[in-house]
Nucleic acid binder design. Structure first.
Length: 646
RNA sequence: GCUGAUGUAGCUCAGGCGGUAGAGCACUUCCUUGGUAAGGAAGAGGUCAUGGGUUCGAGUCCCAUCAUCAGCUCCA
């Protein structure tokens, strides 16, 4: 039998393993190899016998697949420790995730921080035992019997849901047995460094209808240094958390008696959002959008037409008794669509009116469940650049493309274009109640959208069950510092609501037709976008977005008058400037401005005041130079006008 | 909504086993200093998240509520 490995073909005995081969050809690096990828892409243990000649790949911690094996074994190691310390615990599942692993357990009592320490200690002692995971397979029947005997109801449930004919693989690690497809490390002693990072609850099989299990998250590395570096990276990310720096730098705050998800935007946060809103409205006007201003609420009658009453009621704030059919009941708007449609409906429309592009800087209200709020990223009242485009079928592709281009234009300006991914969000065929319209319409609109996406040529992933209730979406996704992904921008194709609202146009042929409606945001929700910007720039927003762009500071009172003059010149140029005339040491003033992430500092002493110059420093602390003050004003003005990412 | 943690001055945190609140930084005033981070003096700041309960007495113990954080679920 021949195995091709590391670029060479080796003659080996029948059924020998890659591990055996590596021991011969690369003995000094042998311990680096964790598992094997076969020619057909399947993974197996390092010492699994290979059945036929083929090209194989030995996976190390450097490859994602190798890391996953490492994390997965670490997860089992943790489960072993838990079972040793708390034998009554029932096992659910324990997969590898992006930067570590978790295992879900069912146990009456919650684990405590002290328990985690105990578990880590037990894991250490297990690592010392040099346990070699042993794989074997059982028939479905035997497997169920085995797991029933072991008292593992979740495992039994898992097996019952697996295909009938598949033999089930198990791993024996010391006295610990687990149902598992593998592969696993050749030896648990490879797991030299690990840390249990957090405790959490998680629903069995991800459904809130099921029991909540106890989840323990952890991470593991081959060396202590790599683990320490990883933990440092996490700490670093947390320092960028908008929820921390946004409060520290006074962009926003919350008040317990106002309520969850209702942040107060402080002057700095409000300023950034104002800059963005004005900019977006102006840019959209240039691109043929018409601004609307529509009500924040409507009677229930409207939501019945739009479908919100039946499909989105839980997400709305309702005023009045919703159960009383006679009463006048209002609800705050969770979306702008039905309101903006009224603009279209204001008079008869012809194909000549299309495409009609409407935009609105819109306040929306959504009654999110209490545990879902997060800083400025997930709130109950937010402001979104929302727009609706009514167009003919021929215009859909061009208009859709225009929406995507506009979104990409804003992303690039914000410097976030490299941080997003695209998701094609489809409906869930098995959960039709969540949506309006018939399957054929959904099929058509999804195919149309996929065709356009492929035409535009953007890379995207597909996601079932993520569509809006009225149509499929292109979602532009972004991750926060904790690695949690959220939708930033969305463009949707809607073949349904026009008909519901009786929106028609007279076509060239004199026929009445329903327009296709695109729902879109261009920059997303301003609060969320601000949060992402704060995280992206660790609070040091690009000059054009900084609430304060320049601070003029003096060394002695003798230069105060000139400083005020410079400040006035900056303001005259349309820049956001302020003076720091306090009687403080200049080093202290500079440092304070740096901590506030102010982009430019203009320092003025006797010499500068006499020469009518300023010494310019940027927020990194670099001395940009001493120059006539007009030149300094022009310098900042340039950074502002060119919207440079600095 | 669920699981868990947390809540003391603007911020970061101390406050054994219940006896009416403390530090550093920040803030205010004055003095001093004056070119790259905090020199001196004085002062002001707290219904200890809120509401109940136990107790002669609660920041401390118990219960409930609210908020904040992480995760799950859900979503822009």
């Amino acid at each position: 039998m021949k195995l091709e490995l590391l670029g060479k073909v080796h003659e080996v005995a029948e059924n020998s393993s890659v591990g055996d081969l590596l021991k011969n050809i690369d003995p000094e690096n042998f311990k680096k190899y964790l598992a094997v990828r076969l020619e057909d892409g399947t993974l197996c243990d390092l010492f699994a016998p290979i059945e036929k000649s083929q090209k194989v790949e030995a996976l190390t911690f450097q490859e994602e697949a190798g890391r996953k094996v490492f994390f997965h074994s670490a997860s089992h190691l943790m489960a072993m420790a838990v079972k040793k310390l708390f034998p009554e615990t029932k096992l659910a599942i324990g997969p590898a995730i992006e930067n570590g692993f978790y295992y879900d357990f069912d146990r009456e009592e919650a684990f405590t921080a002290e328990d985690l320490e105990k578990i880590e200690k037990e894991m250490k002692s297990l690592v010392g035992k040099s346990i070699r995971p042993i794989r074997f397979t059982l028939s479905r029947h035997e497997a169920i019997a085995q797991m029933k005997q072991a008292g593992e109801p979740y495992k039994v449930e898992l097996i019952e849901d697996l295909p009938e004919d598949e033999p089930l693989s198990f791993y024996q690690m010391d006295d610990f047995l687990d149902l598992c497809v593998g592969p696993h490390l050749p030896n648990l002693s490879y797991i030299k460094a690990f840390k249990l990072t957090q405790l959490a609850g998680a629903y069995w099989r991800g459904s809130e209808k099921n029991k909540m299990l106890r989840r323990i998250y952890g991470t593991a590395y081959p060396t202590k240094e790599e683990l320490a570096a990883h933990l440092d990276r996490i700490e670093d990310a947390k320092r960028r958390d908008h929820n921390k720096i946004g409060r520290e730098l006074e962009y926003f705050t919350t008040v317990d008696y106002i309520g969850q998800g209702l942040p107060i935007l402080l002057p700095k946060g409000a300023k950034v959002i104002q800059i963005l809103e004005r900019f977006v409205e102006d840019e959209e006007e240039r691109r043929g959008y018409q601004l609307t201003k529509t009500p924040f609420m409507a009677k229930r009658d409207m939501y019945k037409i739009s479908g919100h009453w039946d499909h989105y009621r839980d997400g709305m704030f309702i005023m009045g008794n919703a159960d009383d059919e006679e009463a006048e009941v209002f609800a705050l708007r969770p979306m702008t669509c039905p309101f903006q449609f009224q603009v279209y409906l204001n008079r008869t429309r012809s194909y000549r009116d299309l495409p009609m592009r409407l935009n609105e800087t819109s306040k929306l209200f959504r009654n999110e469940s209490s545990g879902e709020m997060h800083g400025l990223i997930r709130v109950r009242q937010f402001t979104i650049s929302e727009g609706h485009l009514a167009c003919t079928p021929e215009q859909v592709e061009g208009e859709f493309r225009g929406c995507v281009e506009l979104a990409q234009y804003f992303l690039k300006l914000l410097g976030l274009d490299g941080d997003v991914s695209y998701r094609f969000s489809k409906w869930d065929e098995n959960n039709k109640d969540k949506y309006i319209g018939n399957p054929q319409d959904w099929e058509n609109s999804q195919n149309e959208m996929r065709r356009i996406l492929d035409d535009i040529g953007i890379q995207y992933t597909e996601a079932e069950g993520e569509a809006a209730f009225y149509g499929p979406k292109l979602d532009i996704q972004i991750k926060n510092v904790h690695g949690k992904e959220d939708t930033m921008i969305t463009v949707q194709i809607d073949f349904q609501l026009a008909e519901r609202f009786g929106m028609v146009y007279t076509d060239k042929d004199g026929e009445k037709k329903f327009p296709i409606v695109l729902h879109r945001t261009s920059i997303g929700c301003y609060e969320r976008t601000l949060a992402l910007l704060l995280e992206k720039y660790a609070g040091a927003l690009p000059t054009w977005l900084s609430p304060t762009q320049v601070r003029v500071m003096t060394i002695t009172e003798r230069s105060d008058a000139f400083a005020k003059e410079v400040e006035a010149a900056l303001k005259q140029a349309g820049l956001r400037a302020e003076c720091d005339l306090r009687n403080e040491k200049i080093g202290f003033k500079v440092r304070e401005a740096q901590m506030e992430k102010i982009p430019y500092m203009l320092v003025i002493g006797d010499r500068e005041a006499e020469e009518r110059t300023v010494t310019v420093r940027n927020r990194k602390g670099d001395n940009v130079g001493t120059m006539p003050f007009e030149q300094a004003v022009a310098l900042v003005k340039k950074a502002n006008d060119e919207k440079v990412i600095d």
